[in-house]
């Protein structure tokens, strides 16, 4: 199983380290051709406006298609902004796919960036979380599960195979959130294999 990391800009190295610590094969994705054969993709933290400019053309089109078709994707910070259907009140999603509205830079300028620990549903009460000029989730749709809150604001959520966080698990040594995503990708891959076998026998 190979997990891709969108490698246009941002904290690619840190995500690679976290995934490799889980024993997962990792591939940097710069072009649409790099997407072939992946079981999931990570959108790292970075600057969402820059990533949006760089993820253009056929790469963006293919990512958008995957995001809307249940492909496992994990976005942190800027990566979450790429996957949100609504950003700063505007329904002009970068990739979209996830029924959430996010507010960019909601945690304020860098001097207000912070680290803390959060209770994350399905993981535990003590997950380290680093928030850097972080976006917050201001609204979620009915199919979205809120997984963590900070000061009564949603900062981590899941919808099907899409997982997003306002903060940066990749900046910590704790790989439990990455493991959650790898499990989502593995399960999705397994289900696909079963489905393909069934289709093959039906033929």
């Amino acid at each position: 199983m190979i997990i891709g990391i969108l490698d246009l800009q941002g904290a690619v190295r840190e995500h690679r380290t976290s995934l490799e610590r889980l024993g997962v094969a990792v591939r940097a994705v710069k072009d649409v051709s790099d997407l072939d054969g992946l079981s999931g993709i990570v959108f790292p933290g970075g600057e969402s406006t820059a990533m949006q400019r760089l993820a253009a053309g056929s790469l963006r089109d293919r990512l958008r298609e995957l995001a809307h078709n249940g492909f496992p994707m994990f976005g942190t910070c800027a990566g979450m902004i790429l996957l949100a259907n609504t950003v700063d009140g505007k329904a002009t999603p970068h990739l979209g796919g996830m029924d959430i509205a996010v507010a960019r830079n909601a945690s304020g300028r860098q001097v207000h960036s912070f680290e803390t620990t959060l209770a994350v549903k399905g993981i535990g009460p003590d997950v380290p979380a680093v928030f850097i000029r972080a976006p917050y989730i201001v609204r979620i749709g009915p199919d979205v599960d809120a997984l963590a809150e900070y000061n009564e604001t949603i900062v981590m959520a899941r919808q099907g195979q899409l997982l997003v966080a306002s903060f940066h698990p990749e900046l910590t040594e704790d790989v439990r959130i990455h493991r959650m995503f790898v499990d989502i990708a593995r399960q999705h891959r397994h289900q696909n294999e079963i489905q393909q076998k069934q289709e093959a026998t039906q033929l």
Binding site: V12, G45, G46, I132
Partner: peptide
């Protein structure tokens, strides 16, 4: 914290 300070620089990488 140093992690928060250097963390922003990590996010700027490749840019």
């Amino acid at each position: 914290t140093l992690r928060v300070k250097s963390g922003l620089a990590e996010m700027l990488k490749g840019g």
